[in-house]
Design a protein around this nucleic acid. Structure first.
Length: 588
RNA sequence: GCCUUCGUAGCUCAGCUGGAUAGAGCAUCGGACUUCUAAUCCGACGGUCACAGGUUCGAAUCCUGUCGAAGGCGCCA
């Protein structure tokens, strides 16, 4: 329950009483704060149903609503807007219940779902680059939002550890180090525990091998052969592949620790290996998968399509699986083993067609029925500050780890320049700088809508003022600082009094809007809704802070109520930032 | 060629699924510190929402077309 729901119920019953649908009574935060706190636009639509002028209907509803003791005033404006003001007492009541609620008013789903959030998808042997930032941060955020709404969400890294690239690596190493035991066809193991290659080696090897594969048909054939044998379970190849996987994961874990990204499942494409054959057979039995031009495909076009979609390639003409196959098998795995009721993919929008094919195939083949939501929550691309695709001077993509270093270094420069946090011990200050850097980066990322192609401008993101991560951390820390100071004087947050000025009212209204913010984030699957909100809340708090000098307040009851406001403001802000994967230091 | 997404202030972006006078940040100009952390707050300037039609009480939002941008289009992932 939230204040908005309570009001919607009230206004809805008034609509029902005059003979139209109660759902017309949906109350939203006013778009004109100068005119009202809340508004309802239902009269315009309802008037059509009743065949009477909207203002007449609005007047009737207003009359019923304004007699309610919780309502201070209702006005009808324009074509039939209901402008609603609630009593200050109601606001105080809601602050009391919000402060006493461990979820701070957030709806907890009464039908919790198992949600698998698939984000990241880094590839074995490839370093993370700037482009990986988006899905990782958005995915981690959405996973937390699902949890905050009472769902059981798991993040799956879905490692790219399958297919031709693996064969290319094996073929390359077979050429450069033919004496290694992994290449003895008869060998069954055990093989050395130590990896023959480091992750750095792989990062050099992979682009080479991939390039050669395109240019040299002979090498390509070897790579394809190795891929097939690896998938068939040749012991030496499997052992070598496991090394690729483990050295890659080790380096990934380090960077995820810095980023604050946590996966619950460390599965990959290859973990579906045992499912591929039976899946293809099953889909053939069901008549969904058919032979075409030497391959096995699933036709996914429907009559409603303007243009035929390419069929999903289940097995290519060489007998190999594609990533469509593994993605389909992964859906099966998630449904059967994890009982997923929603699978959310945070993957580049450019893969839209692929997911459309896979989702349709999953429905057609009965892999996931309609009780399982399949969602491609695609993300846009990252551009450089010039608005063009992000590239380094040599044309490559900047490495993510380097980018993190750069960001933290810039955060340090900012703090140094402004002579901030100088009183902190060195190690604490270092940690603050790290958190400030990460906040800058993540807020810069998440304040954009998920689908936009945004300009990555670290100079702008690390600004300490304006709509940035560091600003939001600062506000939360400032709130904490007041609470600390109050506690030193033995002052505690107390009973919420009805607000006595507009800054206070605005702050309370902002705090009480939090449940709908999370709700809407879940509807749009875009964390920028929360990012936008944190800035609004922070601004409302700062205005309150500016207008109401808490420590200097003479009236002890008012002071205690204000301290309560500070406390809840800080809690909501910190919670909201946590959903954006942003951490707030104790002081800064 | 076909399909998809996008085009909002000088710059970077929001815009709560069709509502009132389209909002922020940055930049520019001006104001507020004997401070509960000024990393703040207040004000000013800045828009034919790419363009043209249409749908209706009402359109940045929905439909059609034009121009422009990015991306995708069976055996890579």
């Amino acid at each position: 329950m939230s204040l908005l729901t309570e009001l919607s119920v009230l206004v809805g019953s008034a609509f029902a009483a005059v003979g139209v649908d109660a759902s017309l009574g949906s109350v939203v935060v006013s778009q004109r704060p100068d005119l009202a706190q809340f508004q309802c636009n239902g009269a315009m639509a309802g008037a059509k149903q009743l065949g009477k002028p909207p203002r007449d209907l609005a007047d009737e509803v207003a009359k019923r609503v304004e007699s309610d003791p919780r309502i201070r005033a209702v006005e009808v404006a324009g074509p039939g807007f209901l402008n609603i003001h609630v009593t200050d007492e109601l606001l105080a009541q809601w602050m009391t219940s919000t402060a006493g609620d461990e979820h701070l008013g957030l709806y907890q789903s009464n039908d919790p779902m198992m949600v698998i959030v698939d984000y990241g998808g880094p590839n074995v042997a490839k370093d993370l680059h700037v482009g990986h930032l988006r899905p990782h941060v958005i995915g981690e955020s959405l996973k937390r939002v699902y949890r905050a709404a009472g769902h059981d969400a798991k993040g799956d890294i879905h490692l790219g550890d399958f297919g031709l690239p693996m064969g290319q690596l094996i073929a390359a190493i077979a050429e450069s180090h033919p004496d290694l035991p992994y290449f003895d066809e008869a060998a069954t193991g055990p093989f050395p525990k130590e990896s023959p290659v480091t992750v750095e080696d792989l990062q050099v090897l992979y682009p080479e091998a991939s390039g050669r594969s395109k240019a040299e048909p002979e090498f390509q054939a070897k790579a394809q052969q190795a891929t097939v044998e690896l998938q068939a379970g040749r012991a030496g190849y499997v052992a070598l592949w496991e090394h690729f996987r483990s050295v890659t994961l080790e380096s990934l874990r380090a960077i995820y620790a810095r980023l604050g990204v946590n996966f619950d499942l460390w599965l990959g494409e290859a973990s579906t290996g045992d499912r591929l054959e039976p899946l293809v057979e099953l889909l053939q039995e069901r008549g969904v998968a058919v032979e075409s031009e030497g391959a096995i495909v699933i036709h996914v076009t429907t009559d409603e399509d303007k243009k035929a979609l390419p069929p999903l390639m289940l097995r290519n003409s060489r007998g190999g699986s594609t990533y469509a196959t593994t993605d389909l098998a992964t859906i099966q795995e998630r449904v059967e083993e994890f009982h997923a009721r929603a699978i959310v993919y945070i993957v580049d929008l450019r893969q839209s067609l692929h997911f459309e094919q896979v989702f349709r195939a999953a429905r057609l083949g009965g892999i996931a029925d309609d009780s399982v939501q399949l969602i491609h929550a695609g993300n846009g691309t990252v551009n450089g500050p010039d608005g063009k695709p992000f590239k380094t001077r040599d044309g490559g993509l900047p490495r993510l780890s380097g980018l993190l270093d750069e960001t933290v270094a810039l955060a340090r420069t900012r703090l140094d320049e402004n002579e901030l946090a100088l009183e902190l011990p060195d190690d604490e200050r270092d940690e603050v700088i790290r958190l400030v850097g990460m906040a800058a980066l993540k807020y810069g990322e998440l304040s954009n809508h998920r689908t936009t192609n945004y300009s990555f401008d670290i100079e702008r993101f690390t600004q300490l003022q304006g709509k940035t991560g560091p600003y939001l951390q600062y506000v939360a820390v400032r709130a904490q600082s007041i609470l600390n100071r109050a506690a030193e004087q033995g002052l505690e947050p107390g009973t919420f009094l009805p607000p006595s000025n507009d800054k206070e009212r605005t702050l309370i209204l902002s705090l009480l809007a939090w449940p709908e913010v999370v709700e809407r984030t879940l509807e749009t699957l875009s964390p920028n809704v929360i990012a936008e909100y944190t800035y609004e809340l922070a601004t409302a708090f700062n205005q309150f802070y500016d207008a109401c000098h808490i420590m200097r307040e003479a009236d002890a009851a008012v002071q205690a109520s204000w301290l309560g406001l500070v406390s809840v403001s800080r809690l909501v802000l910190v919670r909201a930032l946590d959903l954006l994967t942003i951490e707030v230091p104790d002081r800064m």
